[in-house]
Amino acid sequence: MKHPHFLENQVRREIKYAMTSLPCISVPTVALFFAEVRGYSKLYDSVDDSPLGWSGLFLSMISFLFFTDMCIYWVHRFLHHKLIYKSFHKPHHVWKIATPFASHAFHPVDGFLQGLPYHIYPFLFPLHKVLYLALYVFVNIWTISIHDGDYRVPSALSSVINGAAHHTDHHLFFDFNYGQYFTLWDRLGGSYRQPSALMGKGPLDLIRKLQAEGKLGNDTAKVNGLAQRGASCKQE
């Protein structure tokens, strides 16, 4: 919250935006849920109904993650197109230094489109109903986690998993790290950026540097000046 890009009353604003958007996102989402559970999808109730039994349950979990990761990458990248961005995705990029509350602070159209892959999957592939619910809870927790500013990740997985460090650079530098769980599609699409936080150049490192230099006081004009001089992100 001491970072020059952290906005005044930001947490309150994030919560307010999320709470006004979520009801609008929920209306078409609930319609899809009704279609899924009323027999129009390939959801099933018992493991015995799985084409591959318990192994099918495990494979569907893995394929769900990779399928939705792929779809969200392209939906997210589409939302950054210059003809779309200002109308729908720009409100989410107001939060350059995000908090967990920014995770659901989307424009309703943006939020629905990025959630759509989760609902497309069970119409295309068999999936256990309970596993679907568990995965849906998981993806919401994951979305919160990549906005929470905790950049720690096992070094062996840092080049594979799209964590908070990766997504923070997406908010700061705009054209990089569109992925949801993995870095695969960013690498294939040429949009991968090694996270600044994992190279000692992230937001927390800037804060420590400014504190060491005595430049993080209560002087608002000074802080705003530092934000303007230090901004290396693209101006939208």
Rank of each mutant, 00 (worst) to 15 (best):
L113T: 06
M19N: 12
L133R: 09
Q180N: 14
L127V: 08
P154L: 06
V137P: 06
I62M: 15
Y17A: 03
E36F: 05
K96R: 13
W142G: 02
P23S: 04
A164T: 00
V160D: 12
W95N: 03
N224E: 12
P108Y: 02
H93T: 04
V130F: 11
Q211M: 14
W74R: 10
L83V: 15
I146T: 04
F88N: 03
P91L: 15
N162W: 01
F34Y: 06
A221Y: 08
E14T: 00
G190R: 10
H128M: 04
P203Y: 00
A18Q: 04
A227L: 05
S155A: 04
F123L: 10
G179H: 05
R38H: 15
L57E: 09
R193V: 03
F64A: 04
H3I: 06
G115I: 09
S158W: 03
E213L: 05
E213N: 12
L188F: 15
M199V: 01
R187S: 08
H147D: 08
Q211C: 13
V160E: 13
S196C: 00
L7E: 00
T20Y: 13
W54F: 15
L133D: 05
T168E: 00
I144V: 11
T220G: 08
G111K: 01
F138W: 13
F67L: 08
T29D: 10
N177Y: 01
P154C: 00
H76R: 03
S155V: 00
E36G: 03
D148P: 00
T29Q: 12
I161S: 02
Q10I: 10
R38Q: 14
I207H: 14
I207A: 13
L226F: 07
K2N: 03
A197S: 11
Y132W: 12
L210K: 06
A98P: 03
S159E: 11
C24N: 09
I207P: 14
K129C: 08
L131V: 10
A31W: 03
C71R: 04
D205I: 14
S158V: 06
L216H: 01
F106L: 00
Y132H: 11
H93L: 06
S159F: 11
S103M: 07
H107Y: 11
V94A: 02
Q228N: 08
S159K: 06
